[in-house]
Structure formats: C-alpha cells, structure tokens
C-alpha cells in the first residue's frame, strides 16, 4: 500500500498531462462537433447539422467504405502471410533469425519513406513494377497502379502489408516459442504430417496470438491516413480517401474544425465498437 497523499503526489504529473492534452481535448471534440467553428472567431451552435451532413452526403459513407475495404484487405492478408511465414520459419531453424530480422526491416521505416518509395515503384513512368512486368513479358499487366480507381486502394494496401508483415511474423513466432515441445514431439512420434500438425495442433494453440495480431493490425489500419495522403492524396476520384484522411483534409484544406470534430467522434465510435466486438469474439473463440 502506498499512502493516500503519496499516491496523489505520484500520479499528479501524469494526471495533469492527461487532463490537459487528452481529457480536455476529447470533451472539446464533442463540444466542437455541434458547432460550425472554423478555427478563428466565434462559432455558432448548429446542433446535429454536422452529423446530418455526414450521413446525408454519399462522400462520407464512401470514405468509411474505403476504410473498411482497406482494413479488411490488410488485416486478412497480413495475418495469413505472417502465419504462413512463421509456420515455415518455425520448421527451418537454420534461417529463422536472419529471416525474422530481414522481414522486420520495413517496420523500421516511416510511412513517409515507404509511401514515397512505393509511389515510385507503382509509377507509370519508369516505375519499378511496370518495368519488371515488361522484363518478364507480362506487359499486359502493366498499368498506372495508383491512377486507376480499381487498383489504387489495393496497391496502397500492399505497401502497408509489406511494411508490417514482418511484425506479424515475429509475433506469431513468439507464439510458436510458447508451444510446449513435448506436444510437438508426441505428434511427430505418431507420424502426424507437417500440415496436419499445423492445422490441428498449431492453429488452435496459437489462438491467443491471432487475437493479438488481429487487434493490433485492425487498430493500426482503421486510423491510417499516411500512405493514402503521401501516395494519392485520396485520389483518384476518392478511391483511396479514408476516414482519417478526410479529417485531415477538412481541417487543413477547408478549415472546417467543427465538421472535422464530428468526423472524429464518428471515428471514435467505430474504433471502440470494432475493438470491443473483436475482443469479445476472438476471446470467445480462444476458449473453444
């Protein structure tokens, strides 16, 4: 037990920082979301108008839909790729450490660098991807990856997956390290094939690691704005305009502080709802 007075003293600095730069801003977000504040001057209370606008114009539900597509793609591909890599590396101890570190490297780079490099890789003019396809005789596949509304979002998602697959792999490998050795050995002695061990032994035992990986990547992806901001600015034709990119654009492009706040509130509700539902669902599956 720490005495009451020391408890207050010890937590006071953290409390002040959190109150001024977290609690107060959140309250302010809610308050501003009911106004037409533009950053300067007085703001008028306009009730629910901002929220009506979000629901009423197709632009904002579309941004939400873009965010959902992006998140589902990234989380699915990244989790599967990380799982497969970890399962392979678990069976190949000779190259495990090198591969884990090598795959992790992109996670050390910033979104800005990754965004620019991949933007050029996808560039229709002397970009790396089209040049490689031409070299391999696959010219018909070459296209302006980021200029085409049907491919732009997935092109960005691939860059995102590239960045974090190593992280997912490393977390799965940590899960593998926790699987008791004798279970694995008993299965081997019984001549259970490598794939069957993977399917019926490793996947169920890795359930908690699935939870961690899926929640981490979902939270990270739902709020992403950096790659679309750098690579396409939300274009072409809104195909890559995520919810958080929309917030930034409303804020700095249009100085609609009140409206940006309303979008933030919507985002908070979505993120918290998704986190709670995922946590509940995945934990329940873990217990089965």
């Amino acid at each position: 037990m720490v005495s009451r007075s020391s408890a207050v003293m010890f937590t006071l600095p953290a409390l002040i920082v959190l109150s001024v730069f977290f609690v107060y801003p959140i309250l302010l977000t809610f308050q501003m979301s009911f106004t037409n504040f533009t950053g300067v001057g007085v703001s008028e209370n306009i009730g629910l108008k901002n929220y009506e606008r979000i629901i009423g114009r197709s632009r904002y539900p579309e941004a939400l839909w873009v965010t959902v597509k992006f998140t589902v793609f990234v989380v699915t591909v990244q989790t599967l790729a990380g799982l497969i890599m970890a399962a392979l590396l678990h069976r190949l101890p000779a190259i495990r450490n090198f591969s884990r570190a090598a795959l992790f490297t992109p996670a050390m780079m910033s979104f800005v660098v990754v965004g620019y490099v991949w933007q050029f890789i996808y560039s229709p003019f002397s970009g790396g991807l089209n040049s490689m396809l031409n070299m391999l005789g696959l010219d018909w596949l070459a296209r302006g990856w980021l200029g085409d509304p049907s491919t732009a979002l997935y092109a960005i998602a691939v860059a995102h997956v590239w960045m974090f697959t190593g992280y997912t792999t490393a977390i799965f490998l940590a899960g593998y390290a926790n699987i008791p050795r004798d279970i694995d050995e008993a299965a081997r002695l019984d001549n259970v094939s490598s794939f069957q061990r993977f399917r019926y032994l490793e996947i169920p035992l890795l359930a908690p690691v699935f939870t961690i990986n899926i929640i981490l990547s979902t939270i990270g992806t739902l709020k992403t704005f950096e790659l679309p901001f750098i690579m396409t600015r939300g274009g072409p034709d809104g195909a890559t305009r995520t919810l958080s990119l929309e917030i930034i654009e409303q804020l700095f492009g249009n100085y609609r502080f009140g409206f940006a706040s309303a979008l933030s509130v919507v985002m908070l509700v979505i993120v918290v709802a998704v986190a709670v539902i995922q946590n509940w669902y995945l934990r329940r599956k873990e217990e089965l």
Binding site: V20, T29, L268
Partner: peptide
C-alpha cells in the same frame, strides 16, 4: 489510461491544434 490507449489520436488532433 485504458481509454487513452484505445483512442486514436485523430479524435483529439483538432482540439489539440486549437489548444
């Protein structure tokens, strides 16, 4: 603290800028 962990920083950037 848990609330702080769960909240994306996008929720607070507008007021943070104003403050």
């Amino acid at each position: 603290v848990a609330l702080g962990l769960a909240t994306p920083n996008f929720v607070t950037i507008t007021p943070i800028y104003v403050i």
